[in-house]
Design a protein around this nucleic acid. Structure first.
Length: 477
RNA sequence: CGGGGUGUAGCGCAGUUGGUAGCGCACAGCGUUUGGGACGCUGGGGUCGGAGGUUCAAGUCCUCUCACCCCGACCA
């Protein structure tokens, strides 16, 4: 027996950590709050990186790398930024056996050190826009940690751009948000709600923060990516100025945006079931696993020859794996790969070889309806079609789940009930007091004010005063 | 930092009134197996989280300490 997975209905948190560990995505590290991303989890991250990086490059961004250490004085230059981050900073005070003259902060995010450089690089409007991304690790001293969702150190990408006008910077902020939405929905199969953060949920130092919010399997919300319009806050703090066409000295307008390894947690919690992971084909490290079955030496030779043949044909188009472990029974392997979330399994036994066919088994459907026989010659097409269908179906299942658990309360009493069951989309007047009161009472926070609004005004679900927009209220990770 | 819990083999656990550590899984070898988590035999593996104390004798009792997990306050 492999590790047992606690059913999600019994204890969602335990289910989550069981799945992450059983599928060998990650493990606890000897350092408190830190994790080891294991090869299978890292392969998933690499696929996430590829899909995002490709989109960043396609929109003119370039990758670079800035230092891990940030002089303490840099962090202190932007007032809100320091205030927001100081409780969770790791600080290096010793180096080379001596106390440092100035302590070094292990980056919690790189706005300050990157903008210190931008101040040197930007002179003219001709230098703009600056469109730089970096893939790196960051450290935030969190009190409570959970694998992938919140760890002391995590991996992410952080984009930092500088523009000549506020309009351009805002357009960039939203362009990236759209990239994140597209990535989440079309690669990760996770439906998201793009929206604006409330003042209290905003990034420390931003003028506006935008987010993509997703519903996890326990009906809580998870912020899966953020894009910030920084205005001129950092430009003023770091003196990033340029001469415009009219020869006037101006501060740049900026954005920053990030997606982290938390996305892996989202994939687990959106698609996973009591059997383990279910990975979207477009990101799955292994898309197709071939499990050979035999009864005797003769059958074994035939089956293995055909399995190798299929492997080499499919490997040209798909990420495939042939499970040729001799010591394990087919049944064990079925469970094993299901637990690891491989979208499609090909079973190949003597009977199949005889008939020139193979059995395709989908991970996204229940046992009773997930198998079909396919002629071996037709495998490449069938595999492609099935993977596409799985990708669409995982998204459709997640979307249906979110819709079934989203409510539209108009009274506060209804809202209280709604946030205990899922997402609540309700009018909000914009007052931080209403927001705080609701949080105090229900533990639900404003996840975002969706970009998509119907434009009709209404009454705030809490205080009843006039409200222009609806907000998503939910419990969040 | 507040509340709760757990530390005994890689994992999950048992260990009685104190008597010098055991079970299941996993692991190794051999054989039989293989269409939904196979079985038999043999074998390896332990500073009982750490320190101190009580005792002839401590996994067990006492004191202190550390780590981790869960629930809250804070956050990608």
């Amino acid at each position: 027996m492999a590790q047992k997975i606690t059913p999600a209905s019994v204890d969602f948190s335990r289910w989550y950590t069981d799945v992450v560990q059983a599928a060998e995505l990650a493990d606890y590290a000897p350092v408190k709050g830190c994790m080891v991303i294991r090869p299978y989890g890292y392969a998933l991250w690499e696929n996430i990186q590829k899909a995002l990086d490709q989109r960043f490059k396609a929109t003119g961004h370039k990758n670079a790398y800035f230092p891990l250490f940030i002089p303490e004085s840099f962090i202190k230059k932007e007032a809100e930024h320091v205030e927001g981050f100081s409780p969770e900073l790791a600080v290096v005070t010793y180096g080379g056996g001596k106390p440092l003259e100035e302590p070094l902060i292990v980056r919690p995010t790189s706005e300050t050190i990157i903008n210190a450089m931008y101040a040197q690089w930007v002179r003219s409007y001709r230098d703009l826009p600056v469109l730089i991304n970096q893939w790196c690790n960051v450290v935030r001293w969190e009190m409570r940690t959970r694998l992938f969702l919140r760890t002391t150190e995590f991996l992410w990408q952080e984009g930092h751009t500088a523009h000549a006008t506020a309009e351009e910077a805002m357009a960039e902020t939203l362009r990236i948000l759209e990239i994140y939405r597209d990535f989440a929905e079309n690669e990760a199969g996770i439906p998201v709600i793009p929206g604006r953060k409330s003042e209290s949920e905003k990034f420390a130092g931003a003028v506006e923060s935008y987010t993509i919010e997703a519903m996890m399997g326990n009906k809580w919300a998870l912020q899966a990516g953020t894009s910030h319009f920084l205005g001129q806050n950092f430009a003023k703090a770091f003196g990033i100025q340029f001469l415009n066409r009219e020869n006037q000295l101006q501060y740049v307008w900026q954005t920053s945006w990030g997606v982290s390894t938390r996305m892996i947690g989202a994939i687990v919690m959106v698609h996973g079931d009591d059997q383990g992971l279910r990975l979207p084909p477009r990101l799955a490290p292994i898309q197709v696993v071939i499990v050979p079955i035999w009864k005797n030496e003769e059958g074994r030779a035939q089956v293995m020859a055909m399995a190798e043949n299929i492997l080499s044909r499919l490997s040209q188009e798909f990420r495939c794996h042939l499970d040729d472990r001799e010591e394990l029974s087919p049944g064990y392997k079925f469970h094993d790969w299901e637990m690891r979330g491989v979208p499609l399994r090909i079973e190949l036994g003597p009977k199949d070889v005889q008939k020139g066919q193979a059995v395709l088994v989908r991970r996204d459907l229940p046992r009773e309806e997930n198998r079909s026989s396919v002629a071996i010659d037709g495998l490449p097409t069938a595999v492609q079609d099935t993977l596409d269908a799985i990708q669409r179906n995982l998204y459709a299942q997640a979307l249906r789940f979110r819709e079934e658990n989203t409510f539209y309360p108009t009274t506060y009493e209804e809202l209280r009930e709604a946030v205990a069951k899922g997402f609540a989309l309700s009018y909000w007047c914009g007052s931080a007091d209403c927001e705080a009161a609701i949080k105090e009472d229900t533990k639900a926070t404003i996840r975002c004010i969706p970009l998509q609004q119907d434009g009709k005004p209404g009454q705030c679900v809490y205080c009843g005063s006039e409200a222009k927009e609806k907000a998503v209220f939910a419990r969040a990770f």
